[in-house]
Design a protein around this nucleic acid. Structure first.
Lengths: 202, 202
DNA sequence: GATCCTGTGGTACGACTGTATCCTAACGTC
DNA sequence: GACGTTAGGATACAGTCGTACCACAGGATC
């Protein structure tokens, strides 16, 4: 059996199996044996490529952070270099919402990790989905819109962005909990953007 | 030993112990033995008052739902019968934010239960913190404010309330994750209310 | 061709889990 | 005072967990 093996590739497969379990049966159902079974390999293989369970779990959150970040970045890049500030916000916030099965699964796993990290700061969220970087970028976008008079003049760019991100976060929760559809959530985001982006008033 | 015992009282103590564990070490750390140890009783006692683990866990989420609901209701009642719509919103939304250690602990436990329920709908959130009832009530408050001209005329009461609740929910997450202080979160809520409640424009 | 390293199967160990069972001390009821 | 019920102590059992260890087959290297 022992061909020469691409370790990174193998780890990716195992991590994907882990995330599949986490998003369907929860982080609690993730054991080394379950990951092995989901990936169709023996327990020993999981042990071999991730010595610890801690290492395995860490790989899961890292992959997840990468995926979510990639989703936002790709959509942002897809809309060209210079688009209206409003379109930027709509696309970026829309990229956070769980619009298809894949992003829904990732958001479920993400939520599980986040909740676990709240009470077990050990394996807490590291990459953290770079909310600060995102927040700063969008704040710049809104600030520019204010200068150009496309937004109510007395709007505070930072707080507007913070509240938009928190709103989106809250909507993600309710969509995952099936108290709301994605379409409803998107409508709420658009409503907020409509009220923010108009030269006249607040 | 066997005095006649108040079962409800005993169950409350055990449930409190469960929630203490859940809010500090996570739902994963909740076992029958741990609850017994936290409450200072033997395993048998936990078995006696909650036959199942399912029953025990269900008691936790029920107590939690009651506490959160009570918090909102108490604060709402404390501000008299007829206060400004804006004050109602500020108080109610403020009651959701984790402002002291107790409410923070409860929100942590709540988040843990919520996340668990997303992937294990079996013991899902039942009472659900009655978000629909809250949503309807606040929508009525905002609708009244619109009629009285205290709010921008073209505001949609329902979507305004939905977005305020989702925003608050998102802020709770970020406060629990210590990416933001409670004061910051309250400031964001006040900012949003400031912009909603002014006769002039949106 | 001998040797070393890499990848994997199999299995075992101790800790912990939920649950079940047996036993008994103190009470209410008669 | 006898007796059934209540409240709980103690222990056992089967299962699962992370981890450790042994064995070994197949390439790479010399």
């Amino acid at each position: 059996m022992p061909r020469r093996v691409d370790h990174d590739e193998r780890r990716r497969e195992l991590t994907a199996a882990l995330l599949r379990i986490a998003s369907t049966r929860g982080l609690q159902a993730v054991s080394m044996r379950e990951v092995a079974a989901e990936a169709g390999v023996s327990l020993r293989v999981v042990q071999y490529y991730f010595t610890d369970k801690r290492t395995l779990m860490a790989s899961g959150i890292a992959e997840l952070a990468g995926r979510l970040d990639r989703r936002v970045r790709e959509r942002a890049a897809a809309l060209g270099t210079e688009l209206e500030p409003r379109a930027v916000l709509e696309v970026v916030l829309g990229a956070i919402l769980p619009t298809d099965d894949d992003s829904r699964a990732d958001q479920l796993a993400w939520t599980a990790y986040y909740a676990a990290g709240l009470t077990t700061p050990a394996d807490a969220v590291d990459g953290r989905y770079a909310p600060d970087a995102l927040e700063r970028w969008l704040t710049g976008v809104v600030a520019r819109a204010v200068e150009e008079g496309r937004v109510v003049a007395d709007a505070d760019p930072r707080i507007e962005v913070v509240s938009l991100l928190a709103l989106t976060n809250g909507l993600v929760s309710s969509v995952l909990g099936q108290q709301r559809t994605v379409d409803d959530a998107q409508a709420v985001v658009r409503y907020r953007l409509d009220r923010l982006f108009r030269p006249a008033a607040g």
